[in-house]
C-alpha cells in the first residue's frame, strides 16, 4: 500500500471539503494578505482557527510536524538569523556572541506567519481536487485579456498541486532508504542535500516520464475536453467561510 501524506487529497464529510474551490482561493488570498500585517495576538487567533479546521479535517498534527520537519528547521533558522541581524537589546548566548531580543521576537513573528500560510496550503491541498483547481484558475483568469493560454496555466497550477504530495512521498522514500544506510552519520549538510537531491530528481523525472506515457496511452492531449468544465458545485457553506475570513482579516488589519 502506498503512503499518503497529509497533503494528499482525501474525501471527508466536512464543509471545507465540499466548499466551492473559488471560495477557498478567495479566503486563502485574503487571509494571506492579512497575515502579512498580523501581530502575535492576531496570529494566535488565526492559528486557532486553522488548527480547528485541521482537527475537523482529520489531519494528524504529529504527522504534519514530522512531514514538515525541514520546514520547521527553516523557521528556526529565520529566528536565529533575525536574532543576529536585528539591532536592539543584546542577549549573550555564548561568551562574546550576542543576539538581540527584538530580533528573536521579530523572527518568531515572521516564522509564525510562514507557518500559518503553510497550514492554509495544507488545508487547501488535502481538500481540493486538481480538476476543480484547474477550473477555478481558468475562471479567475477569464477576464484578464493578456493571458492567451488560460487552460494551460490552469493545468500547470493543478499539476503542481497534484504532484507536490507525490514528490514529498518520493523524498520520504529516498530519505528512508538512505537512513537505513546510516546517512544520518554524514555531518556535511551539502553532501546530505546532494545525496537526497540526486536520486530524488532522478526518481521524479523517471516517474514523470512513465506517467506521461500512461496518460498518452489513454488518449490524453493538451486540448482534452473537460466533462465538468466551468462547473462549480456550491455546498451552501461558502457564506460562512466568507464571513469568517472577512472578520479575521478585519481584526488582523484594523485592530
Amino acid at each position: 500500500m502506498g503512503r499518503v501524506t497529509q497533503f494528499s487529497y482525501r474525501k471527508e464529510d466536512f464543509a471545507l471539503f465540499q466548499l466551492d474551490v473559488r471560495c477557498k482561493i478567495i479566503c486563502i488570498c485574503s487571509l494571506s494578505v492579512a497575515i502579512t500585517k498580523a501581530d502575535f495576538l492576531h496570529l494566535f487567533v488565526i492559528s486557532a482557527a486553522l488548527l480547528w479546521l485541521i482537527y475537523r479535517s482529520n489531519l494528524k498534527i504529529l504527522i504534519i510536524v514530522k512531514e514538515l520537519k525541514y520546514f520547521f528547521f527553516m523557521l528556526f533558522f529565520i529566528v536565529i538569523v533575525r536574532g543576529f541581524t536585528t539591532s536592539g537589546e543584546p542577549i549573550s548566548i555564548y561568551k562574546e556572541i550576542y543576539i538581540t531580543k527584538e530580533g528573536i521576537i521579530d523572527g518568531a513573528k515572521i516564522s509564525w506567519r510562514f507557518l500559518s500560510i503553510m497550514f492554509m496550503g495544507l488545508l487547501f491541498s488535502c481538500s481540493t481536487q486538481s480538476a476543480s483547481l484547474k477550473n477555478a484558475v481558468m475562471w479567475f483568469l477569464k477576464p484578464i485579456p493578456f493571458i492567451p493560454e488560460k487552460k494551460r496555466v490552469g493545468v500547470m497550477v493543478s499539476l503542481f498541486v497534484r504532484f507536490l504530495p507525490l514528490i514529498m512521498d518520493k523524498a520520504s522514500e529516498v530519505s528512508d532508504a538512505q537512513k537505513s544506510r546510516c546517512s544520518h552519520l554524514q555531518k556535511n549538510p551539502i553532501k546530505r542535500i546532494k545525496n537526497i537531491a540526486t536520486p530524488l530528481l532522478q526518481k521524479v523525472f523517471h516517474s514523470a516520464d512513465k506517467l506521461i506515457i500512461a496518460m498518452e496511452s489513454r488518449c490524453y492531449n493538451a486540448n482534452r475536453p473537460e466533462v465538468n468544465e466551468h462547473h462549480f458545485l456550491r455546498s451552501g457553506y461558502e457564506e460562512y467561510f466568507y464571513v469568517g475570513t472577512a472578520l479575521l482579516a478585519f481584526f488582523t488589519i484594523f485592530i
Binding site: 494528499s8 487529497y9 474525501k11 481536487q129 486538481s130 480538476a131 497534484r162 516517474s207 512513465k210 506517467l211 500512461a214 496518460m215 489513454r218 488518449c219 490524453y220 492531449n221 482534452r224 475536453p225 473537460e226 466533462v227
Partner: peptide, 18 residues
C-alpha cells in the same frame, strides 16, 4: 506511475473524458 486521478473514480474516468 499510471495513476492520474486523485480518487479511484476520477482515475477510471480519465480515459473516457479524453
Amino acid at each position: 506511475c499510471q495513476i492520474v486521478g486523485q480518487t479511484v473514480f476520477e482515475d477510471a474516468a480519465f480515459g473516457p473524458e479524453n
